[in-house]
């Protein structure tokens, strides 16, 4: 029963967000801020995650294929495919669930318990349009871009790690990656990032917007936002794979 009530509140919050799409003047300034916070400020951590994921993937794949009679260019194919189709989107999103999700839930939760959201509403603002919509829109726009950064940095990381460890020369890596490259994989990765961006920002907004109970309540909302975002990202990942692959 409680779960149904929460689902209803979540749906209503998103419905109110969608209904206020036309109120561009209310959210445009916050949208620009959120694009910078979710996108630009996340680039370093996304690049770092991508580089190390690609590097580890290359070295582990090389280790697993050591005794098989398989051309080493396959290492490049496996690494780049895995990054494009799964790892760049999922690992980046799990990292961002912590960074972006926690920030959103804390900001909105603090605004809720200190009556700043009530203050907005009492001035005649649509607080959903002002606070929730720009964050969700920024997530939808920036996560696919961050996925592209993560994919590129992952492949670069793989090439560098392969060359430095002597597992595979860069030319072989690139050859393998090109041979098994399917444009659909990138499309699918972007679609995943889009969905994950929506899941993380909307769940975090929901948890923050309805926070209650002072500092402890904000802490609980932030924890729930992060944990639930991670769980829903993994669930969405499974559903998308089952439907589209």
């Amino acid at each position: 029963m409680e779960a149904l009530e929460k689902l209803g509140k979540y749906s209503l919050l998103l419905y109110r967000s969608l209904r206020s799409l036309y109120e561009v003047d209310t959210y445009k300034k916050n949208l620009v801020n959120e694009l910078l916070k979710i996108g630009y400020e996340s680039v370093p951590i996304v690049l770092l995650t991508g580089v190390f994921t690609g590097a580890v993937m290359t070295i582990q794949t090389a280790y697993q294929l050591e005794i098989a009679f398989i051309p080493i260019s396959v290492i490049g194919a496996i690494t780049s495919e895995s990054l494009l189709i799964e790892l760049a989107a999922v690992i980046t999103s799990l990292v961002l669930a912590g960074k972006v999700g926690a920030r959103i839930a804390t900001e909105l939760g603090t605004m809720r318990v200190s009556e700043q959201i009530d203050a907005l509403e009492s001035m005649g603002f649509n607080s959903v349009s002002f606070l929730v919509l720009p964050r969700v829109l920024a997530g939808l726009i920036m996560f696919p871009m961050l996925y592209i950064f993560a994919s590129i940095s992952g492949i670069v990381g793989g090439i560098v790690a392969g060359a430095m460890s002597g597992a595979i020369p860069p030319s072989e890596f690139i050859q393998g990656a090109r041979e098994f490259f399917y444009p659909w994989d990138v499309t699918f990765g972007i679609l995943k990032a889009f969905v994950f961006g929506y899941v993380i920002t909307s769940v975090s907004c929901f948890k923050g917007y309805y926070a209650s109970g002072g500092a402890e309540g904000v802490g609980n909302s932030t924890t729930q936002a992060t944990v639930l975002s991670c769980i829903y990202v993994l669930l969405a990942d499974f559903v998308l794979a089952a439907v589209f692959l």
Binding site: E115, Q116, D118, A119, E121, S122, G124
Partner: peptide
């Protein structure tokens, strides 16, 4: 309702200033 709310000013208990 939002139009009507603009007829009110509210001084909240904790001031509710935007940090």
């Amino acid at each position: 309702l939002r139009k009507m709310r603009q007829r009110f000013g509210v001084l909240f208990q904790g001031s509710a200033l935007f940090d």
